[in-house]
């Protein structure tokens, strides 16, 4: 009797230690990154191209490339993901096809990201002749995050009480009118939260971009999207080669010189700042609407 009580206490302590150990490593990681990289962080670092000389190198082409990629990824994955999630949750709930699609999405979400890179390489770069462009990279990442957005959409739709649907249908609204004007607006905060989290994952993805052949050394930017003359908007940049923030970090990490790993640490600080900011915004949206909506 006595020993089992002692074992219970001991486990409680051990459980706390185990739970906190992950956080301890997190702290250690953040400490080393900041201790190494903070000194290197400056305005020049943000507005300079990469260079052979570590002290002159910067992340301009990297973060601009990341912005381009995210724009393509969002434009492709958001509409498709929300539409697919809406179908599965509101239309095809009970049929066999929907069950199959659901299993497929659960499986896709667990496929290693580098496999998506091979798909992007075979499909976008080769078969569709997009080359190693921003467009090919953005679409590859879009496919990667699509399952996450579909699942987030379904979860948010599921949280809307059936009474809302029934009330709308009882007033004579069609199914689509109900979905479009009642269900989707009510579920939007949840969908947006999931989308932001998905994008914050896409921002850090390195392997699929390396696989489709993103260059690690780029000293120019994709063509500027805004022009002085008509039609003012140019999408030529979509077809330019690119690099991205995690690729630049990887490139610097793989070099033996100490000065480059310091650059990598500084790049990581920028990357983590973006990722944490996006996660923070997602949590804020979630909390804000959770308090506001009471069914």
């Amino acid at each position: 009797m006595r020993t089992s009580r002692v074992a219970d206490r001991a486990f409680q302590v051990w459980g706390l230690v185990a739970t906190v150990s992950g956080l301890f490593v997190l702290g250690w990681l953040l400490y080393t990154v900041f201790a190494d990289g903070l000194q290197r962080l400056s305005w020049n670092f943000l507005v300079s191209f990469p260079s052979r000389k570590p002290e002159q190198a910067g992340i301009l082409s990297a973060w601009v490339g990341t912005v381009w990629l995210m724009a393509v990824t969002l434009a492709a994955a958001f509409p498709l993901g929300v539409a697919a999630g809406t179908y599965l949750e509101e239309y095809g709930k009970k049929n066999r096809l929907a069950g199959l699609i659901e299993m497929n999405i659960a499986n896709l979400a667990a496929v290693p990201s580098i496999i998506y890179g091979l798909l992007g390489l075979g499909l976008f770069v080769r078969v569709l002749h997009m080359g190693r462009s921003v467009l090919a990279g953005g679409l590859t990442l879009a496919i990667l995050v699509l399952p996450v957005i579909v699942m987030a959409t379904r979860e948010s739709l599921r949280a809307i009480p059936p009474s809302i649907r029934e009330a709308s249908l009882a007033l004579g609204a069609t199914k689509w009118q109900t979905v479009r004007h009642q269900i989707l607006p009510a579920a939007m905060p949840g969908i947006l939260t999931g989308t932001i989290l998905a994008m914050s994952r896409a921002i850090g993805e390195t392997a699929p971009l390396i696989t489709i052949g993103a260059l690690t050394y780029i000293a120019f930017l994709p063509a500027h999207p805004v022009m002085a003359e008509f039609p003012f908007l140019s999408l030529k940049g979509l077809f330019d080669p690119f690099t991205a923030l995690p690729i630049q970090v990887f490139n610097w990490v793989s070099r033996p010189q100490k000065a480059f790993s310091t650059n990598a640490a500084a790049g990581i600080i920028v990357l983590l700042a973006i990722v944490f900011f996006m996660n923070g915004v997602a949590i804020l949206i979630r909390n804000h609407y959770r308090k506001k909506i009471r069914w």
């Binding site: 992950g22 990681l29 080393t32 850090g204 995690p246 970090v249 790993s261 983590l272 944490f276």
Partner: peptide, 16 residues
Amino acid sequence: ALEVLAAIPTVVFGYF
């Protein structure tokens, strides 16, 4: 806090 750990890009863990 564990979610933060899960959100860190893998390239950062490689550096670490």
